[in-house]
């Protein structure tokens, strides 16, 4: 019961603090900009009499670019919105009035986690769905395996959420934010090193990327999502932010699921055992 009460409060907090509405407004602006770009592109394609195959591939590339931007926004949204919920309440003492109620601490944490999961699910569904809808209306193209890709992006967000929660039970808000973003930055860089390694067939560079993904599998999930969603031709494109020269395996996806679960368990244990 405590879980759902805390999840509800977390959701309501986002709405009352206008966080939810601002995210929706920013998302709306993003989709409008994306749609405008696609509209002018479609007009130009028609004017130049571009071949349907090329037109389709370029639209696919635009779609993947839009999804890439959504992924970056989701990463930032996940860390920035959730980083203060535990460490901030511990620092201000707000948590004391809740932690002395007949609700186990793990339920307080899991409730907050579910609250953010709800918000992030809505956000990712809206943005991924929006980008796909706009591309479909403007160019008649949608992601290849939309659900798979969307679920992988959602999972990436959940991994980052759980890691941010785990850090927030040990450190202050700022430190937790820096650590979570830093860890994702490591994975991001590792992803690029892996791509370049694959391009130049430097196996040790590929291994560096794999190790970075083991340390933080968030970026690997995006790369797998990009692989699932873009066209086979686009997948064969050489170096780009969404190129998939070295595609993370399903084993990496399972590893990410395990990583998520472990991060959540660490957060629960740390929060349950720390002084408030």
């Amino acid at each position: 019961m405590g879980i759902w009460i805390m999840a509800g409060v977390t959701f309501r907090e986002a709405a009352r603090k206008k966080m939810l509405w601002m995210a929706l407004a920013a998302g709306g602006a993003f989709l409008t900009l994306f749609g405008t770009g696609l509209h002018f592109q479609a007009k130009d394609f028609a004017a130049h009499g571009m071949s349907p195959v090329l037109r389709r591939e370029i639209s696919f590339a635009m779609l993947t670019m839009g999804l890439y931007a959504v992924d970056l926004l989701a990463v930032l949204m996940t860390i920035l919105t959730s980083v203060d919920t535990l460490s901030g309440e511990i620092a201000s003492g707000t948590i004391q009035a809740v932690a002395t109620k007949p609700v186990p601490r793990w339920q307080v944490l899991v409730g907050k986690w579910f609250g953010f999961v709800g918000m992030l699910t809505a956000y990712i569904a809206m943005m991924v769905g929006g980008v796909n809808a706009v591309t479909y209306v403007m160019a008649g193209v949608t992601a290849r395996h939309l659900m798979h890709g969307c679920l992988l992006m959602w999972m990436e967000s959940l991994v980052l959420l759980s890691v941010t929660f785990a850090f927030a039970t040990y450190f202050s808000t700022l430190t937790s934010g820096v650590l979570a973003l830093g860890l994702h930055g490591l994975a991001f860089l590792g992803g690029w090193i892996e791509q370049f390694g694959a391009l130049t067939q430097t196996h040790r560079a590929v291994n560096v990327g794999v190790i970075a993904s083991v340390l933080m599998p968030s970026e690997a999930l995006w790369r797998r999502a990009a692989f699932e969603m873009q066209s086979p031709l686009a997948n064969a494109m050489r170096i780009s932010p969404f190129s998939t020269l070295s595609v993370p395996s399903m084993a990496m996806v399972y590893y990410a699921a395990l990583y998520l679960a472990i991060a959540l368990v660490v957060a629960i244990r740390s929060f349950s055992q720390r002084d408030l």
Partner: peptide, 19 residues
């Protein structure tokens, strides 16, 4: 945890969600 249902607590600096 169960005993807490019979306990009330006013912290020194009472803070709560200001919204």
């Amino acid at each position: 945890v169960k005993t807490r249902s019979k306990v009330g607590f006013l912290p020194e600096h009472f803070r709560f969600y200001d919204w």
